[in-house]
């Protein structure tokens, strides 16, 4: 008998006659608050700046440092930026800043979700450089996790980001940044 058949047989025998309980319905999430989103992101010790579309280019220019890479489809011009043309991981390792957009922001948890579509780049792009400047539009912010899931396409790779990389592994002292970007700079755009 193959491992598959045997495991499924054991599962079938172990669960014979077991009734599935009904699931309780949960409350819908409350109204969306962009202010809450900004507060909660900042709570993770990320930098949060609010600006208008007109101000965005200058804010981006001020937020970047060193060599900058941008994904295809980014909606803002970044001077002297390198376009990501399937750079190798080693090449990305020599870049200081990446600028991207996002797919959705979650107010309750202060989370930004990337679905790595146009303007966001493939996953490695927002992982290897040490500084991530992320542009979130106010109309992309939803109230809670369930609202985000409803908008997201599971067929795409998804990265949920809540503040910069962090660890508390040494005596529970929180340290920003082990492997992901140690600096997360969020530009929240509202007009």
């Amino acid at each position: 008998m193959s491992a598959r058949e045997e495991i499924l047989r054991r599962v079938r025998e172990a669960t014979a006659g077991v009734e599935a309980p009904t699931r309780p319905a949960l409350a819908d999430s409350g109204p969306v608050s962009v202010d809450l989103f900004a507060d909660r992101v900042a709570d993770y010790r990320a930098v949060v700046e609010r600006c208008t579309t007109d101000q965005l280019p200058e804010r981006v220019a001020a937020a970047v440092e060193g060599r900058v890479v941008v994904p295809a489809g980014l909606g803002v011009e970044v001077a002297d930026a390198i376009d990501d043309d399937q750079l190798t991981a080693a090449e990305l390792d020599r870049i200081d800043t990446v600028v991207t957009e996002a797919r959705v922001g979650i107010a309750e948890t202060g989370t930004i979700v990337l679905d790595h579509g146009p303007g966001q780049g493939r996953r490695a792009l927002t992982l290897v450089p040490d500084r991530h400047v992320c542009i979130v539009r106010a109309d992309q912010v939803v109230a809670d996790v369930q609202d985000a899931l409803a908008l997201l396409d599971h067929a795409r790779p998804l990265t949920w980001i809540s503040g910069p990389s962090a660890t508390s592994d040494i005596e529970l002292d929180r340290v920003e940044g082990v492997h992901g970007p140690r600096n997360l700079h969020v530009l929240l755009v509202e007009d």
């Binding site: 399937q86 948890t109 493939r122 996953r123 490695a124 599971h154 790779p157 998804l158 949920w160 809540s162």
Partner: peptide, 20 residues
């Protein structure tokens, strides 16, 4: 961890051409 959300959550469904 006692956080509202952990810093990173990754989700993937099979293979994505050109990514990962």
């Amino acid at each position: 961890t006692g956080e509202r959300m952990n810093p990173y959550t990754s989700m993937w469904t099979g293979v994505t051409p050109g990514d990962g």
